[in-house]
Design a protein around this nucleic acid. Structure first.
Lengths: 143, 143
DNA sequence: CCTGATGTAACTGTAGCAGTTACGACAGGC
DNA sequence: GCCTGTCGTAACTGCTACAGTTACATCAGG
């Protein structure tokens, strides 16, 4: 499937902001984060903008501007990050409406919808078990 | 994210083959299945070709050709169908290698990989709870 | 006012999915 | 042995989304 790296980059950015804070940094700039992720600063600003709408980070403008976490890193789970950056459902139903005169075509969307819902729920529940603080700890633990 | 409908169409095709068999049909043709899914027969043949490589269906060529399930519908789970049609991992790591001189950039891929693995595992485990026979039953139950 | 950073718009390149046409390969029936 | 119907597959198009980039307006502190 179309696997994208939005969750990866968002988690990286949040972990960097948190580590920077622990090192005494007031705020982190998109340029600094982009340097660690190895991408363009605009890509970071776009992603962090979605995280701000979700209430996970705050930004300051003007001179001495930058980003910081809106809540402790321990309380931000990857499930919240996922919800903030991936709005579309994981599985799509039919591109075109199936044949309603066929018993399968008529009922299959109603049959699959709860299955997909439960599967996404299981995915989110597992992501909820990891926080941004966990990501920082595990990253620093790599030799 | 790029949600595609490959799992949906594959499940629909398998359910249709099973229902057709229960109605006395020897084999199902891609044209018949495409008529129920409301798509092109080539789309069906491509998808069923992947399911055949996974050992879920068999095809016969020549006159009177078509498709049938390789195993009872009760024993084919959506987790197997998902594995057959979606080879790529759900979450991608970084598009470009992160900055190795940064502690976060150096360790984050190793930190995220098991998290993503566990999340996908939870997804597959939930999909494994539904079989093609369940899909047929639930589809027919829709008024 | 100057400076440095955010906030966006606009565009490009790339990739995958879905759809379509076309045609070769195959196997059974006549 | 040819006809027919279906699979098997290549090739192409249109569409969408992600990632990257440039450009510029906006803002706030010094």
């Amino acid at each position: 499937m179309g696997a994208n790296s939005r969750l990866t980059v968002a988690a990286h950015a949040l972990a960097w902001i948190e580590l920077n804070r622990r090192m005494g940094g007031e705020v982190a700039t998109s340029e600094q984060i982009a340097n660690s992720v190895n991408t363009n600063a605009v890509v970071i600003r776009r992603l962090l903008g979605e995280l701000r709408e979700a209430g996970l980070v705050e930004s300051r403008r003007g001179a001495g501007a930058g980003w910081r976490l809106a809540r402790p890193a321990e309380s931000i789970s990857l499930a919240e990050v996922y919800r903030a950056v991936e709005e579309a459902p994981l599985f799509a139903l039919h591109p075109a409406e199936p044949n309603q005169e066929c018993p399968v075509g008529h009922g299959i969307r109603s049959a699959l919808a709860p299955v997909y819902g439960d599967a996404e729920e299981a995915l989110r529940a597992q992501l909820a078990r990891t926080s941004v603080a966990d990501v920082v700890r595990d990253s620093l633990a790599v030799p």
